[in-house]
Nucleic acid binder design. Structure first.
Lengths: 189, 189
DNA sequence: GTCTATTTAGACCGACCTGTCTACTTGGAG
DNA sequence: CTCCAAGTAGACAGGTCGGTCTAAATAGAC
């Protein structure tokens, strides 16, 4: 691994921890490089600016979720399992060890503090749309496409709400309740 | 109205606009007093610190929602109308004129950028819990208390998710879709 | 008209912000 | 061994942050 890539990944790891725990604008450059253990110039050699680091952070969170999803999907590939893999990906995220507790979806939290026209908000909106799309694809194996689309929207709302509420409470219990609700909805098809 | 209270309400109005549009940590003291048209010392005569202003802002958003809800509730007081009054309160909020577009629930957005132990997060969690409680009370007139509690949780998740997604897209369409979904769920009881 | 409480504008403080620059060290490829 | 890209530590700049302070203006109570 080239040292340049090494510094870059150390910075992304540090940003992931600090941005998630304390928020983006509350986290300064100096805190990120101290947590990463690299020099300030290594940040500016790998990213255009703090905004560039933020964009990379958002992209990494999206890809991290996709990997959790794919790992869950590998285990079972029937349509019901596919829907539950999406829920479980969020559960895995919620139950990963966080220094300061679970605080909800990192992407949604980031969007909440980005200004109205910021490109980062599009990344987040795209992630949420993709999740709904994956839900719809699995559901189309279980019912007609009209109902699949409606159910995908409904389940994505349920999931989103459960994650937000769970993040406010700091633990994953509400997310488990959403999972059992979604499970019975999908099994009834 | 005493001038002191006048300055206080001008500050709260300005904070409401700026905190909602640009986020809390991205909004400086100087921006708030410029928007309010008052002197900096008027802020510190009325609030202990910026955190004090933020806490008052959160409280005001909660009370603002309660007033929207009560106004909607006055129109129709059957249980179904009670549930829909809650949804409509959020719709009224979403469709109020915002300088930079609808950006979701101001309370949830604020919580997203508050650090883990901040008392402001408890205010937000309390608001969400109270909304679920109001839902449950209305639903208990329509079904047994066990199902009322389960449905209240489910509807609060749906609402929360729809608001977040709608905020990402900048308009209230998704919230209308959630309303029609909730309407048919409640009418079926 | 006088007194008192409040608001005003703005200077000021130390801390922190993002971002740049320099000068030195390191380590792997040829 | 040499070279060079990448890393290092840290000073530095210009700006903004939250918060304090002062002195002048103002307005209501008496």
């Amino acid at each position: 691994m080239s040292p340049r890539l090494d510094a870059r990944s150390k910075l992304l790891d540090a940003a992931a921890r600090l941005f998630y725990a304390h928020g983006i604008s509350a986290t300064g450059i100096d805190a990120v490089i101290a947590e990463a253990g690299v020099a300030k110039m290594s940040l500016y050699n790998n990213f255009e600016s703090k905004s560039g680091l933020v964009a990379a952070y958002l992209q990494a969170r999206h890809e991290e979720w996709l990997e959790l999803y794919r790992a869950r999907l590998g285990a079972s590939s029937d349509p019901v399992g596919g829907v539950l893999a999406i829920v479980d990906a969020y559960l895995d995220h919620a139950e990963a060890g966080y220094e300061h507790g679970f605080r909800g979806c990192g992407l949604l939290n980031a969007a909440a503090e980005l200004p109205a026209g910021d490109p980062g908000r599009s990344i987040v909106a795209g992630h949420k749309a993709q999740v709904e799309d994956l839900l719809r694809e699995h559901l189309e194996s279980l019912t007609d496409s009209r109902q699949a689309a409606a159910l995908a929207e409904q389940i994505s709302f349920l999931l989103e709400g459960a994650i937000s509420r769970a993040g406010l409470e700091g633990h994953s219990e509400l997310l488990h309740r959403a999972k059992s609700l979604i499970t019975s909805m999908v099994r009834a098809l």
